[in-house]
Amino acid sequence: MPRATLNGVTLAESDHTEVVEGNHYFPPHSVNTELFRPSETTTHCPWKGDASYVNVEVDGAVVEDAAWYYPEPMDAANNIRDHFAFYGNKVDVAG
């Protein structure tokens, strides 16, 4: 089952992720958003749309822009609406 962890703490876990461009996108109900902190970072993908980022805080340590999601994706990426993906160089993603 795909799982995202940071320092041994589970951030997300689900057997129903959407894999896009090699990234697991976890559905909103499977993510521990209590560990998320606001980020001002946004990016744009020509076919997915505008991504919003979050910082992740575990045991007082904050990892900036560790995860992103598409709150209003373009039609081609509607399957990942509000799903969270994590940067593999910042968060351990296995599965």
Results as ranks from 00 to 15, higher is better:
44 H>I: 06
51 A>F: 03
17 T>P: 02
22 G>D: 08
87 Y>V: 01
90 K>N: 07
57 E>H: 03
41 T>N: 13
14 S>L: 04
42 T>V: 09
47 W>K: 07
79 N>S: 15
75 D>L: 07
49 G>H: 11
88 G>T: 04
29 H>C: 09
12 A>R: 02
81 R>K: 15
48 K>Y: 05
65 D>C: 14
58 V>T: 08
2 P>C: 05
10 T>C: 12
51 A>W: 04
15 D>Y: 00
8 G>Q: 05
27 P>N: 14
76 A>S: 15
31 V>I: 09
67 A>S: 13
57 E>V: 09
22 G>L: 01
68 W>A: 01
42 T>R: 14
75 D>K: 13
74 M>L: 15
12 A>W: 01
87 Y>R: 08
54 V>K: 12
15 D>G: 10
27 P>R: 09
94 A>C: 06
58 V>E: 09
90 K>E: 01
16 H>M: 12
16 H>L: 13
29 H>P: 10
24 H>C: 09
27 P>F: 01
93 V>D: 01
9 V>A: 14
31 V>H: 04
34 E>F: 07
4 A>I: 02
8 G>M: 02
18 E>W: 00
56 V>N: 03
86 F>K: 04
38 P>Y: 10
71 P>V: 09
42 T>A: 07
49 G>R: 10
49 G>F: 09
16 H>R: 15
66 A>G: 06
73 P>F: 08
82 D>L: 02
57 E>L: 06
7 N>E: 10
91 V>T: 01
51 A>C: 12
71 P>N: 14
46 P>L: 10
1 M>S: 02
15 D>K: 07
92 D>R: 11
75 D>C: 02
26 F>P: 12
9 V>P: 12
54 V>L: 09
30 S>Y: 00
67 A>V: 06
74 M>H: 15
5 T>I: 00
16 H>D: 15
35 L>D: 08
66 A>T: 01
35 L>W: 05
73 P>W: 08
4 A>K: 00
60 G>Y: 06
87 Y>W: 13
75 D>H: 11
27 P>K: 12
21 E>K: 05
47 W>L: 08
49 G>I: 09
88 G>W: 00
50 D>E: 15
55 N>Y: 04
88 G>P: 03
2 P>S: 07
19 V>D: 05
58 V>N: 10
75 D>E: 14
25 Y>N: 12
20 V>Y: 03
69 Y>V: 12
38 P>T: 11
44 H>R: 11
57 E>G: 04
54 V>F: 08
72 E>A: 14
93 V>I: 03
12 A>T: 05
82 D>P: 08
59 D>A: 14
81 R>C: 13
13 E>C: 02
